[in-house]
Each structure stands twice: as structure tokens, then as C-alpha cells.
Nucleic acid binder design. Structure first.
Lengths: 219, 219
DNA sequence: ACCTATTCGGGAACGGTGTTCGCGAACACT
DNA sequence: AGTGTTCGCGAACACCGTTCCCGAATAGGT
């Protein structure tokens, strides 16, 4: 295991047999597969099959499956289309979160990955730079600003995950157990909360994020 | 796959050969193993070995490995020692987060699990009931209160995960790449942020959580 | 034109994984 | 004693990530 992260392992000069594929191609295949069949389907063998090669060949481009997952995250982060920083910070950060949510809903496997691992690739650092630029005039400490970035990411991923699981079988299971809990009699507040209207309306994404950011950096 | 969650599958009456173990015993073995060797070590075979049985036997107590993970989460949630609800809501919620952080630092595998899956077991519903009780007088909507519970959980898990990974090899890797990014010249704000003092002090856990909760439910 | 250094492709294998099948053993009840 | 039912679990299946190793392919030097 090298002390050097994936992003620094560079292709060497024109010596020896040339590679038939590129790291970007492998990453794209993995993303396509994850979009189509979910993260669990992204195995080295399946990704290789997607490219029409053998599984072992992938290790010419990637040190491990974990590296590939990091590459997938960063590649999707290339999709941000950020306006030049300027103006008040809250709308600036909100726009970042809006786009993050969009990307996560488009790639349903992203939230889980973002919540679990915290690798910062080239596009990730660009995003962090943008957030720091938006907050350039803000008097908060550097530590708080970095933390704000982390909270934005985590919160958006968690909320997106909730949206994605909204109508799934897991939700039904949850409902079945909650009905049982309510029937059992204890948990008065829970019962009261879930009884008026079988479906509780969730606050809007933007409202929630605004409130959290205002609390974190506010006044 | 049943539509009924794990928590409702009950032991049947005294018919046939009696079981040699209990679901609680299996759960405890899995938790002990995870505490000792991490979540990756929790395989059906290893848990079974912990109990001195065969792997296939575990399926008498649990439908799948995922079920076992849900049981582990809920079992740890039995460790909360919550004061009777009453008084202002912010300290009440803060105390919940404090204890959650404590449990997560004691069981380093918990944050990842909590962030990824959202199953509510018996102890989980007790906790949710407590949070709703603390917020009983608060004028916010039910949807917002439920969302607050989710944000508390997610945020605490994410911050605990950061604490746990603080001194790991992954962090070193991250630092190596950031040094490279800084050396590359672009990313002025990032460079400025990380240059004064190689180690940026992180805001305190309680301060962060207080601010987020105040923003979410504030004024 | 040949040789050599170097890289790539990938079949085969290793040691794992979750899960299912089916059968003998063990018990409760009649 | 017989019967119905559950339990324990070895064996097997279909995967998984990763490593080994060797033949093929290329570039540069001569």
C-alpha cells in the first residue's frame, strides 16, 4: 500500500506496451454500471465485463476496488456547474447543496458512498475551494468553515438518501413495525405524531439546509 | 423475504427441539467481534466461530446478515440513559447527542452503520419517543421534528466518524494529496486556510450540534 | 533488422463471502 | 412409544477482491 493517494499515480512515459484503456474509461464503466444496477453490482468482474476485458486487467488502472469507488465519487463531482463566487454567502452555499442533491438523485449510489468515505479528489478540492471562496468574507474560523463543508456534504447526502428510499420496500417494513409499536400503547408522542394524517409532509430540502447553515455560520 | 421486520419475528411456543442459543446471544457475539476487530470482521462464519457453532446455524436466529446488523444497532441503543424529559428543549436534545457520540466512540463501527441504514428497532423507537417528548411544547411541525431526529443522528455519526479517523493512515494520504494541490498553485483559499498552522483546530462537538439544532428549530 | 527493457492483458488460482439444502438429532406432546 | 416439529450444521453454490505469472505487444537503442 502506497502512502500516495490514487490521484497522484500517474501514467509513465511511452515505454513498453501501450495500455488499451484509460483510468477514465474504467471509471465511466463503473459509473454506468452503478447507475444501472446499483452499487452492489460494481464488482471488479462486472466492471471488467462491461469493458469486455478480464477482471485482473483493471488492476493496471486502479490499485483496489476502494480506489475505484473514490474515482467514481470524484468523477461525478466534475458535474458541478458553479457560478463565480460573489454576493452573500448563504445563497452561494445553497446553490452548491442544490446541485449536490441533483447529482445524488441522478446517481442513487452516491449518497451511501459520500457518507462512508471522505476522499477528496481533484474535483472535490475544486468544490472545497469554491465553498471557501464563497465564505471568504465571513468572519468564522477556518475550522468552522471546513466543518461547514463537511456538514453540507453529509446533510445533503443523508437527505437525498431519504428521498431515494422514500417508496421502497424498506419503508414499508418500517411502517409495519411502527404500526405495531403504536398498537402496543407506550410511545404516546410517537403515536400522536404519526396519527394525524398517515403521511407526514417533510420540510423542503432548501428550507432545511438554509436553517442548518444559518445556525452554523449565522448572525 | 417477509414484509415483517426482524423485530416482529417471534420465537414460537415450546414445540420441537429447543434452541441452544438466543438472538440476543448472537447479537452480543457480533458486537463483541465488531468492537474487537471492526465491522469487516463481522461475517456469519466468524460470528458463528465466536459462539462455537456452524455458520448455517445463525440463520435460525436471523434472516440475513443485514438483519444482524440492524440488531446490533438497536442493541447498542439500549445503552442510552436518558433523564426524564422536561425543561428547555435544547439541553434535552444536546444530552441525547452527547450520549450518542459516547456510544459511537465506544463502538467504532456504529457511525458507518447508522449513516448507511435507517432501521428503527425497539430501542430506536424509544429514543425517538424521547426526542418527541423533549420537543412536545415546541411549535414546530411534526415533519420538522422527525427531520430533526434524523439530522441529530446523521450529524452525530458523521462527526464521530471524523473523530475516529482522525489519526489514521487515510488522513495521512489525504494530507499528502492536499500538499500536492497546494503546491500546484490554484486553490488560493484552500492554501490560505491550511497554511496558518499545519493543524486546524476543529470546533467542539457540542458547539456544532447546538448551532445546528438552534438553526433547525430556532427562535 | 534485431535485441532488450518494459509494460499490458488476462486465465487461473487462493482464500474468503452470504446463503440454501437437506438430513440426522433432539425435544414436547399425545 | 410414536409423531410432529424444530434445531444444528456439513456441504455446496455462486460469487467476491486480489495476486501470480506468463505470453504478447510495444519503444528505444544499436
Amino acid at each position: 500500500m502506497e502512502a500516495v493517494p490514487v490521484w497522484l499515480r500517474e501514467r509513465r512515459a511511452g515505454v513498453g506496451r501501450p495500455a488499451e484503456r484509460s483510468r477514465a474509461e474504467v471509471t465511466a464503466a463503473a459509473i454506468a454500471l452503478a447507475d444501472r444496477e446499483g452499487l452492489a453490482a460494481v464488482s471488479m468482474r462486472r466492471v471488467a465485463a462491461e469493458l469486455g476485458t478480464g477482471a485482473a486487467s483493471l488492476y493496471r488502472y486502479v490499485d483496489s476496488r476502494d480506489d475505484l469507488l473514490d474515482l467514481m465519487i470524484d468523477e461525478v463531482a466534475a458535474g458541478y456547474q458553479l457560478p463565480p463566487p460573489g454576493g452573500p454567502w448563504l445563497p452561494g452555499l445553497l446553490e452548491v447543496c442544490r446541485q449536490a442533491r441533483e447529482l445524488m438523485l441522478r446517481h442513487g449510489w452516491l449518497p451511501e458512498l459520500v457518507l462512508t468515505r471522505s476522499a477528496l479528489g481533484p474535483h472535490g478540492t475544486d468544490l472545497l475551494e469554491h465553498v471557501l471562496a464563497v465564505l471568504a468574507e465571513h468572519p468564522a474560523s477556518v475550522g468552522r468553515k471546513l466543518e461547514t463543508y463537511a456538514v453540507m456534504t453529509t446533510l445533503t447526502a443523508a437527505l437525498a438518501l431519504n428521498e431515494l428510499n422514500g417508496g421502497s420496500a424498506a419503508r414499508q417494513r418500517q411502517g409495519a413495525y411502527l404500526a405495531h409499536v403504536i398498537a402496543a400503547g407506550r410511545h404516546a408522542h410517537l403515536t400522536a405524531a404519526l396519527s394525524r394524517g398517515s403521511l407526514v409532509p417533510a420540510p423542503s430540502f432548501e428550507d432545511t439546509v438554509s436553517r442548518v447553515l444559518a445556525g452554523l455560520l449565522g448572525e
